[in-house]
Design a binder for these strands. Structure first.
Lengths: 253, 253
DNA sequence: ATGCACGTTGCATATGTTGCAACGCGAAGG
DNA sequence: CCTTCGCGTTGCAACATATGCAACGTGCAT
């Protein structure tokens, strides 16, 4: 809608790939150098981009701070967090909380496993959308048309032999997940890691977020992990209940 | 420099405080509603803002993804990470990595403690700049004028009785840190938590990042933690050596 | 010294942005 | 049921502003 802002914003993902100099930015934006310079300067003033010693630009620290602050004001996250901690104290494994937003699924909270095993995931990181248990839950709840259109424009990377292979398989899986009310990822993202996920619903019954428990084979087998399902579902329901109370606004008593 | 982009960017911190509707945004920007609408639409198209069901706007998921991606391409972080993991395997405590950037200090990496104690900090979160060991190290290396000007415009919240009280005390502390080449935070941020930090230097000898080890009193006393200083300094030096090799560009062999 | 590669600046042009006023729409209230 | 209010949305004309150009700096290499 606004050409100038549009151009400025197109710079950000471009710099996210790695530092770039003025000319590279201008070329990729398809504008004159002087135009790119002025846009970068404005972004710089707001701390969105940073100019390193070699004069190249990269994304700035303000961006991190913004993302951080935004995450902390999310209602679901605040409500869910204590529940996730309690669950983690009981079972010890890694717990994730994720939301869906216009084509993307991102982790908004994570409680680390008490076992000395590291799992690569990070708050703010886009989820492996075709395989993650939380992603299946969140997408399964969308209207049919949207589900289909998303499924079709996704890519289906073969992380492992058990990754979702294509759109058809994905849509079938989503229907199954929708019916059973919970989801799994059994080695679909990383060979040795299994997850069990459960939905968190808002006052309108729609899925507002999803949580999952992940553990590597070396700690528990998939079967053992699945035994925790009732506990996980109960936690998700507890969060749903609390969240349904005050969905719309924080300050309604 | 560019009015339109400037206005659009001013919307972001405004929304970071919490959701707002069109009129509120327009008022706070001091522009006409229609102008605010067009800016918000453009931000929306880029996923920077999200419109929730009640029509109010809040920050969007793309912001998280961007911040995340940017962080992962930081050279220091990539180089330091394995060293931090090794150190963590030896001593078990929480380890942070932080950088300074135009007035802000942010954590760019964190390795969780192996002890079952949670510490509130998060990657991307702005550091408690007046007390944190990493912040002292990073600021201590700035030219005198800049150090002074920053110190003077900072606020000095009294997190605890041992927090840095004012600009004068802070500047003195910075000089001390600069001389000794390492820093501590002994209960200055949270009563029961102590930290020891060490600088990571680039090829030019300037401090490019800082790392710290944090542990609560219940796990180790401050004295015991300080005994780890040589080990921490050695780790920081190892990272510095490796980082000095390829500061400027990733692809110089 | 000379050339090259890039960043930077001033300026005239026209393009894109702005504020206005009017419209739409749902909620609240008589 | 109609009116009023609050808020988001749209089309348009006026003008501010972003744009590309060409020329100028500056550092680096030859």
């Amino acid at each position: 809608m606004s050409q100038t802002v549009d151009r400025a914003l197109r710079i950000l993902p471009l710099l996210a790939e790695g530092p770039a100099n003025l000319e590279q930015v201008a070329t990729r934006l398809d504008v004159h150098k002087s135009t790119a310079l002025r846009l970068l300067r404005t972004l710089h003033e707001h701390g969105m981009v940073y100019r390193q010693e070699d004069q190249r630009y990269r994304l700035g620290a303000r961006l991190f701070a913004l993302a951080q602050q935004a995450m902390e004001t999310l209602d679901v996250r605040e409500i869910a967090h204590p529940h996730l901690l309690t669950l983690n104290e009981k079972i010890g494994h890694t717990i994730h909380l994720a939301v869906y937003e216009e084509g993307e699924v991102v982790y908004i909270d994570k409680v680390e496993s008490r076992y000395p095993v590291r799992m690569y995931s990070r708050i703010g990181k886009p989820v492996a959308i075709t395989v993650a248990a939380v992603a299946k839950l969140l997408l399964a709840d969308l209207p049919e048309a949207e589900r289909r259109s998303i499924a079709e424009r996704l890519e289906y990377p073969k992380y492992t032999a058990r990754s979702t292979p294509d759109a058809a398989a994905f849509l079938t899986e989503l229907l199954r997940v929708r019916d059973q009310g919970w989801a799994t990822d059994l080695g679909g993202h990383e060979e040795s890691i299994n997850c069990v996920g459960a939905p968190i619903r808002g006052a309108d019954g729609r899925i507002a977020a999803a949580m999952s428990v992940s553990a590597p084979n070396v700690v528990v087998t998939a079967d053992e992990l699945l035994k925790l399902r009732p506990l996980i579902l109960r936690t998700a329901e507890a969060i749903s209940r609390e969240y349904s109370g005050n969905t719309v606004s924080k300050d309604t008593p």
